[in-house]
């Protein structure tokens, strides 16, 4: 009944309770995300736009605006490394004031770059790779060994032959009964 009630009534609108996209510190995080996800001119341009949004935002709680301005200058100068550091540092206060994330809040504190894809294989990985290759070879060999003995064509012939014999046998039985 409670479930039906919820379905029938729907859900009330929820406040974001912080971490919404119109907060200044989230705009700074957006700029950081573009910098780490889209290295290059396009990413820098997007980041610059988000920095401008953050500087113009009404809600700048916990944002060190002077550091954001410095980060903007660094971005304009093409120094994305310095800009990243400045942007991350500029929202330290806002991050420290965050409550544990609930609902759809991200809970993100530091915007890290994507985890690097693999480097050279370690010794353990070489061993695991060799074992996996052996397992693959054994599995293929066994599945070939255990394959069906007959092709579809042979199966069709067997079924037809067996059906022919059965009909002959039943004809003979009928004739015998007569």
């Amino acid at each position: 009944m409670a479930l039906l009630g919820v379905i029938a009534v729907g859900q009330p609108a929820q406040a974001d309770g912080g971490q919404s996209a119109d907060e200044g510190y989230v705009m700074v995080q957006q700029a950081l995300s573009f910098l780490v996800n889209e290295p290059g001119e396009d990413g820098t341009a997007e980041a610059l736009m988000r920095v401008d949004n953050a500087l113009a935002a009404e809600d700048q709680d916990g944002v060190d605006v002077s550091m954001v301005n410095e980060a903007r200058d660094a971005l304009v100068a093409g120094d994305t490394v310095a800009a990243r550091t400045l942007l991350q540092d500029s929202i330290t206060e806002a991050i420290n004031e965050l409550s544990p994330a609930v609902g759809e809040q991200t809970g993100t504190t530091i915007v890290l770059a994507p985890f690097p894809s693999r480097g050279p294989l370690s010794l353990v990985e070489w061993m695991l790779l060799a074992l996996s290759a052996i397992a693959l070879a054994i599995g293929i060999a066994l599945s070939v060994r255990f394959r069906p003995g007959e092709s579809l064509k042979e199966l069709r012939r067997d079924i037809s032959d067996a059906a022919g014999e059965n009909s002959k046998r039943s004809e003979a039985t009928v004739a015998g009964e007569k």
């Binding site: 995080q29 957006q30 995300s33 991200t106 530091i110 994507p114």
Partner: peptide
Amino acid sequence: GSPPVAGI
């Protein structure tokens, strides 16, 4: 990937 950020 990178930790999530809202609004993008």
